[in-house]
Amino acid sequence: MVKLSNITETIPVPEDVTVTIDGNDVTVKGNGGELTRNFNHNKIAISQDEENVIVSVAFPNKKDKAMVGTIRSHISNMIYGVKHGFTYKMKIVYAHFPMTVKVKGNTITIDNFLGERSPRLAKIIGDVKVQVKGEDVTLTGINKEHVGQTMANIEQATKIKRRDPRVFQDGIYLVDKTQEEIE
């Protein structure tokens, strides 16, 4: 088996976004905000030239090659997030018991889910903004992982247990993932 001597991935950086690399820490600043992340991996080197971020590894094995692609995707998502942002749209669905959804601090409270007396709670991760209008829930933020995890927390909070999900289809479900321009 012949090992490759070097794997290199380049990520173009737009003009209105600045990327700063300090060891394993990558900081991305744009008109939407600032994101910082530590990529601590022994063999992988992150560097930058005038207009690109370069992720490389020397003499990689299979896992190192996969990690280069993963880090490239994370940095690309950070750049896209501070430039455009991420918006997830969810829909509140109920048949018999109308549920009410409220945002209180960094938690989302779901009352009267399937007629239950105690409210269900979902945690908001990071600085994700949650808006509830009627049957629509909108999640916006610059960190794709925080927006996605908040969406998953809401879906898990309304997971139906001990009932047939084909009959009881109540819950809060993802309808649309979009990326919108930050002004």
Rank of each mutant, 00 (worst) to 15 (best):
46 I>P: 05
8 T>L: 04
41 H>T: 09
130 V>C: 05
36 T>A: 15
177 K>L: 12
166 R>M: 12
42 N>F: 10
131 Q>H: 09
138 T>L: 07
170 D>P: 13
50 E>H: 03
46 I>C: 10
20 T>I: 14
25 D>H: 14
91 K>A: 04
145 E>L: 07
156 Q>E: 09
123 K>F: 02
30 G>A: 09
31 N>A: 09
16 D>Y: 04
42 N>M: 10
180 E>S: 13
129 K>D: 05
78 M>D: 13
32 G>F: 13
55 V>L: 08
133 K>I: 11
139 L>H: 03
84 H>G: 03
119 P>R: 05
70 T>C: 14
168 F>R: 02
72 R>F: 06
18 T>N: 14
94 Y>D: 05
41 H>C: 07
175 V>P: 07
72 R>H: 08
100 T>G: 11
112 N>C: 04
107 T>Q: 06
180 E>G: 12
94 Y>T: 04
105 G>Y: 02
59 F>M: 13
169 Q>T: 12
3 K>F: 07
177 K>D: 13
158 T>K: 01
1 M>I: 00
61 N>F: 11
101 V>I: 08
121 L>G: 01
37 R>K: 15
15 E>K: 12
97 F>M: 01
71 I>G: 13
61 N>A: 12
22 D>W: 11
136 D>C: 04
5 S>I: 01
54 I>K: 13
36 T>I: 07
59 F>H: 08
142 I>K: 01
122 A>P: 00
72 R>V: 03
49 D>I: 03
30 G>C: 11
19 V>T: 08
118 S>Q: 10
125 I>L: 14
163 R>Q: 15
3 K>H: 05
131 Q>I: 10
158 T>H: 00
159 K>M: 09
74 H>P: 07
142 I>F: 00
27 T>M: 15
166 R>I: 06
22 D>N: 15
89 K>I: 05
21 I>T: 08
60 P>G: 12
5 S>W: 00
146 H>G: 02
144 K>W: 11
48 Q>F: 04
136 D>V: 08
82 V>P: 09
154 I>L: 05
117 R>F: 02
164 D>M: 13
20 T>Y: 09
135 E>W: 02
165 P>C: 10
78 M>W: 10
111 D>Y: 05
111 D>G: 04
33 G>A: 13
158 T>Q: 00
89 K>A: 04
110 I>G: 01
33 G>K: 09
31 N>V: 09
97 F>A: 05
140 T>G: 00
60 P>M: 10
56 S>K: 14
35 L>I: 15
68 V>A: 12
